[in-house]
Amino acid sequence: MQISSDGQLLTTSLIITFRGRILQVNDIIIDTGSSHTVISPDILEEIGVLYENL
Rank of each mutant, 00 (worst) to 15 (best):
T32A: 00
V25M: 02
V25E: 08
Q24L: 10
E52Q: 14
Q2F: 00
R21F: 04
L14R: 02
I29H: 01
N26A: 07
N26W: 00
R21S: 10
G48K: 04
I29M: 11
S13C: 03
N53D: 06
P41A: 04
L23N: 09
R19N: 14
H36V: 15
T17V: 11
I15T: 12
E46L: 05
G7I: 07
T12V: 10
F18C: 12
D42Q: 12
I47P: 02
D42G: 14
I30V: 14
F18Y: 13
N26T: 03
L14S: 08
D6P: 05
I22W: 08
N26H: 13
P41W: 07
G20L: 08
G48H: 05
T12N: 07
L14C: 01
N53E: 10
L54K: 15
Q2M: 06
D6N: 02
S34H: 01
I47T: 03
L14N: 03
N26K: 08
Y51D: 07
D6H: 06
L23I: 09
L50K: 14
I43C: 08
E46G: 03
I16K: 01
T11W: 13
S40F: 06
L54T: 15
G33C: 00
Y51M: 04
I47N: 00
I15L: 14
T37S: 14
S4E: 08
S40H: 11
T11L: 10
E46D: 02
F18I: 05
S34C: 13
I22H: 11
F18S: 15
S34A: 15
S5R: 02
T11F: 02
L54Y: 15
L14G: 05
I22F: 03
R19G: 03
T37F: 11
G7C: 06
E45A: 06
V49L: 12
I30C: 07
R19F: 12
Q2W: 09
T11Y: 05
I43R: 02
D31M: 06
M1G: 07
T11D: 14
D27R: 09
L44F: 06
F18H: 15
G48T: 01
D31E: 13
E45F: 08
L10Q: 07
L23C: 00
L54N: 15
I16T: 03
S4N: 07
E52V: 11
D6M: 06
D42Y: 11
V25D: 09
L44Q: 06
E45M: 11
T11R: 06
L54E: 15
N26D: 12
H36M: 12
G7A: 06
T12E: 01
T32E: 01
N26G: 11
E46V: 02
I29W: 09
T17A: 00
T37H: 09
V49S: 03
Y51W: 10
M1A: 08
F18E: 11
D42A: 13
V38I: 15
T37I: 14
M1K: 08
G48W: 01
I43M: 08
I28K: 04
I28P: 09
Q8A: 15
S5T: 00
F18L: 10
V49H: 01
G7R: 09
E45L: 09
I47A: 03
G33L: 03
D42H: 11
I15W: 12
E52R: 10
S40N: 09
L10W: 14
G7K: 05
Q8E: 13
I16D: 10
S4F: 04
L9Y: 12
